[in-house]
Simulated scan of single mutants.
Amino acid sequence: MERPLTLVTGGTRGIGAATALRLAADGHDLVLGYARDDAAAEECRLAVEDAGARCLVVRSDVADPAGVDHLFARAAEHGRLTGVVNSAGATLHIGRLAETPVEVVQRTVELNLTGALLVARAAVRALGTSYGGRGGVIVNVSSGAATLGAPGEYVQYAAAKAGVDALTVGLAQEVAGQGIRVVGVAPGLVRTRIHEDAGDAGRLERVSSGVPLGRPGEPAEVADAIGWLMGPEASYVTGTTLRVAGGR
């Protein structure tokens, strides 16, 4: 049988990298998009290949339409896509909205919402039956912040991720006749470098007491949810976002 081919944006670190490893174990070949960390990309590629999957890593900026076109063109050279995990994202900054530089607000929305929209658009054109595709699954990675609002930390990120939740609901209905399921996951506090990259390396320890399960999640726990959503067991699931946030 032909192996599934899945593209994962933000696929070489954190939740994206864990997802790549989970999907490789499930028998997928991978195309992994990433923005800047070449060393992490190479490390992830080797790990995926060690798991028995073919893997292509592609450096691109998903907030740039040209970057999205480049990513999907390279993926097409690798084979026919059967799924897309829309995982690229970052908070970029921690602080009150009124004290956040305008350019940071703009970049946050461009990366987390505009980028997700552009990737979803390209995914439909790659997967949709009216475009010559065979159908497939799109998984949008949102955030628990989309419903909590993240006051005092990153309201602009929460707002962008709320848009991703709306994207999942609307696009699922729009493309159901194209053989495409569109689903989402909303991670809560997860042990990745997202907080360190935003300038607050101690945030996990500072706020984990507010999680009902009493700890941060691990990237693999989110990846397992994504793997299930992409599999046949979730064949009747579309237009909804699964919260993976320890009860918060």
Rank of each mutant, 00 (worst) to 15 (best):
E174L: 08
V182H: 09
G136P: 04
V169D: 00
G128Y: 06
L167Q: 10
V182K: 10
G115H: 09
V155N: 09
G177M: 00
R125V: 10
A166H: 03
G115N: 13
Y154G: 05
G152I: 12
A172T: 02
G179K: 01
I180P: 04
T129G: 09
D165W: 00
G144V: 00
E174Q: 14
G152L: 07
V155R: 11
G170F: 06
V139I: 08
D165H: 12
G132E: 09
G163S: 02
G163T: 07
G144A: 14
Y157E: 03
T168H: 09
A166D: 00
V169C: 00
S143I: 01
V182I: 05
V119K: 13
T114V: 15
V183H: 04
S142V: 06
T147S: 14
A120W: 11
Y157F: 10
A159H: 04
Q178M: 09
V139D: 12
A160P: 02
V119I: 14
S142W: 01
G136V: 05
T168G: 05
A162K: 03
L148G: 04
T108P: 06
S130D: 14
A116E: 13
G128N: 10
V183K: 00
G184V: 04
N140S: 14
G179R: 01
R134W: 04
V141D: 12
A116Q: 12
V183L: 07
G179L: 05
V141N: 04
V141W: 09
V109F: 11
V137H: 03
Q173G: 15
A160S: 06
V182C: 08
L111Y: 10
R181V: 02
N140T: 03
E174I: 01
V137N: 06
Q173T: 03
L118D: 14
T129L: 08
T168P: 06
G128E: 06
A126G: 12
A162I: 01
G128H: 08
G184L: 02
R134H: 15
Y154F: 12
G115Y: 12
N140Q: 07
G177R: 13
V109K: 08
Y157Q: 05
R107W: 04
P151R: 13
A176S: 12
A146H: 05
L117W: 15
A176Y: 00
A126S: 15
A145Y: 00
V119E: 13
G135F: 00
